[in-house]
Design a protein around this nucleic acid. Structure first.
Lengths: 234, 234
DNA sequence: GCATATTTGTCCGTATGTATA
DNA sequence: CTATACATACGGACAAATATG
């Protein structure tokens, strides 16, 4: 009995109402939310029998959903032992940032002056910055974190590459795992201003400067996150 | 009856002998090989009933394997219609190269002079170049293609990032899909020399030059591949 | 170290729904 | 529009591996 009781409430009703897709994908989407929103902590086991009973789906269908999420890095499959919510080591977290840096810096560098010429392009980014600032003003640090994620997702989206978007979504899902249990304000507060600064550079068409700034940004963010995790441990 | 007969031969024996892993993963690995080696062409349907009979696994297990490969982009899942070997459109192929360029150029750029100082680091790349040249000398163009893939995989591996390695493996699997049915010599021959040239730049520690050259290389490679596909179509 | 209980891994049969001829 | 074929999903069963006492 490793899973908590609270997170099971209302799951069955929620999975039945999700949009048209295969049952396995609906279950996967539901579990993905629960994991990334911290409802069930890293390391906890997901019992096949218990979950299939609560979700009202067969074990086979549930296992298909497990495969999907395992492939995304959210769950880990241990043979004959079951599936667990993934726990990111410091090395793995650094690796996530390694890939973020490669993708995001590349996207920004190749933007060139195009971003300066069409202001509409950056509208989603401006909205994310505004949302983050508003959330910070009212102390909603979880909202700041979400806005920050959206900012980076929209930044990558400027490249118009479905595969880069998908990779970013996976990285963000793993990042949310790493955020669990840490002080949300300390985690997210510094990046309201940094996002705004970065956006200014991009909007000015200074893509090389923006890429360099983003590299510093991400390196600092990783160091910051590692430090926060360190104090949360014995 | 959309699948050919030949590719089914000996599958059951092969899947039984694969190393210790879950049956679903063994089946996935086997199908992955069949797809990337062109044994079954893009667009062909994989019948659950037929495959489960031939592989001697249950449909549930087979479906788990399908989920894994679908997530890798090798198979596409059409609801209530079944799974098919993915067909890459020109746009998707360009997107694959978009991600390759982001990853590989980033890796090369960040190598710096380190590669020049430790020659052992580049040993796998040298071996791949030699293998490719030898294969070209005897007209083994499929072997040239394989060596080329290994070269790029080893290049990315210099970064020491498991996630970049995994992403590269997925991209290469999709690339192999695009290679199907094209003239292997025309497809792979030009890159024996380009790999050697690129390696020289890297070995000299000129990482910025190498990154720029690699960018040209990949852009040219994409254009080349698109042109070859165009002539293979009506 | 051993026997047992629990959980996962796998298979089968079957029922239902969907797309296509 | 009906019919058919096939994917989707379920529940029960047993085997295999692991964890527990």
């Amino acid at each position: 009995m490793t899973t908590t009781r609270s997170f099971l409430d209302g799951l069955a009703a929620e999975v039945a109402v999700l949009p048209r897709a295969s049952t396995a994908e609906r279950v996967a989407e539901l579990l993905r939310r629960r994991v990334t929103e911290g409802e069930l902590p890293p390391g906890s086991q997901l019992s096949e029998e218990q979950l299939s009973a609560v979700l009202q789906v067969s074990r086979n269908t549930l296992r298909e959903a497990f495969r999907l999420l395992g492939h995304e890095g959210l769950l880990v499959h241990r043979l004959h032992r079951g599936v667990f919510v993934a726990e990111l080591s410091d090395d793995e977290l650094a690796d996530v940032y390694r890939v973020r840096r490669a993708i995001e810096c590349d996207v920004v560098r190749r933007l060139g002056p195009a971003a300066a010429e069409d202001p509409e392009l950056l509208a989603p980014l401006r909205a994310d910055v505004a949302t983050g600032a508003a959330a910070a003003a009212r102390g909603d640090w979880s909202g700041v974190g979400t806005a920050n994620m959206h900012f980076h997702a929209h930044l990558v989206a400027l490249a118009g590459s479905p595969r880069l978007d998908a990779a970013t979504a996976r990285l963000h899902a793993e990042l949310r795992l790493a955020f669990q249990g840490a002080d949300a304000e300390a985690m997210h507060a510094p990046y309201v201003q940094r996002n705004a600064d970065l956006l200014d550079l991009v909007a000015a068409g200074r893509s090389a400067d923006a890429a360099a700034a983003l590299e510093d940004y991400l390196d600092a963010s990783l160091a910051h996150l590692l430090a926060l995790r360190a104090v949360g441990r014995p």
